[in-house]
Amino acid sequence: MSELNNNTAPQQNEELQNIVCPENLVHSKPALLNDQTMHYCPGCSHGVVHKLIAEVIEEMGMAEKTIGVSPVGCAVFAYRYIDIDWQEAAHGRAPAVATASKRLWPDRLVFTYQGDGDLGCIGTAEAIHALNRGENITIIFVNNAIYGMTGGQMAPTTLLGMKTATCPDGRQADLHGYPIKMTELAAQLDGTAYVTRQSVHSVPAIRKAKKAIRKAFENSMAGKGSNLVEIVGTCSSGWKMTPEKANAWMEQHMFAHYHVGDLKDTEVNREPVKL
């Protein structure tokens, strides 16, 4: 922790020092999120999602009973930051890896952490079939509509008109096909218990996303079936915007195609909801 290096008057500084004491601590990084600086770009949504997962595992007291499966993509190094046991899967194969871990260790909390290329493109078969079998796992799906790690190429979820390195004039349906809605697909599958789309761009959104992750994890442990939590996120570097502008762009454009909310919750209704 740094010093209170603020441009404050000595008297003010003293008052601040009085506030900064363990009994007054109301919010800090969860202990499971370790001290390593994350490799993500400034403002990247992955950091918030990592933090929420760490908080939920911590609050559920499941640190020693969790197996995380990290993907290929920007989050490949998720295992460096959250202090639980991890296995790093091949591109798209995380749900198959998690299927075996959960079936062989029924009392463990097993989740995958996947991006849009990993889940919505190369790993579509593994994702759909794990969800459809009703594997008692949770898939955390971070959708920022671009391939971040390889340098900003078109993703299966790239919006029409959106410019990337491999569709420099913008995605065109006749050339590149349409952006895929994996979460809507997942909601149609009988094996899924809870399918939701969230975001992490504001305080209320983050609070909701955390509740969604908690619910999904609890479902997995209760044996209710598969859970998919999509987080619509930003990629400031790939989108070539400041984090603040990226959030605004996401609200305006991404949410218009990827509607935020619960698509299916078998506790409430067996049938998927049309958003």
Partner: peptide, 8 residues
């Protein structure tokens, strides 16, 4: 996103 803030 980087978990670098503590609030008191």
């Amino acid at each position: 996103p980087d978990g670098c803030i503590s609030v008191y």
